[in-house]
């Protein structure tokens, strides 16, 4: 299965990179932009796993390493390889 884990700072945790990017976008004339958040996408393949198994495994990976629960939340997407 193809897995994609998306990690973002939790709402309420100041995303200084998002803020700086938003300011730069506004400086370029995109006046209507708001709520810019910077995150991270981690993609990988999981061999021999069903979609449900792959989702569970990806969650375990996110809990153990890919995301820091103190500051980040994540979402998992799974698709056929």
């Amino acid at each position: 299965m193809k897995v994609s884990v998306e990690v973002f700072l939790k709402p309420g945790v100041l995303d200084v990179q998002g803020k700086a990017t938003e300011a730069a976008l506004k400086g370029l004339g995109f006046a209507n932009v708001s709520d810019v958040r910077l995150g991270r996408i981690i993609r990988f393949n999981l061999a021999g796993a069903s979609a449900d198994e792959a989702r569970a495994q990806a969650r375990a990976m996110a809990d153990k390493l890919l995301a820091n629960a103190v500051i980040e939340s994540y979402s998992v997407e799974v698709s056929e390889a």
């Binding site: 700072l9 945790v13 100041l14 200084v16 990179q17 700086a20 820091n68 103190v70 500051i71």
Partner: peptide
């Protein structure tokens, strides 16, 4: 230890 270290507020 509790907590985490984020990017400096001034970047």
């Amino acid at each position: 230890l509790p907590g985490a270290l984020l990017r400096n507020s001034g970047l």
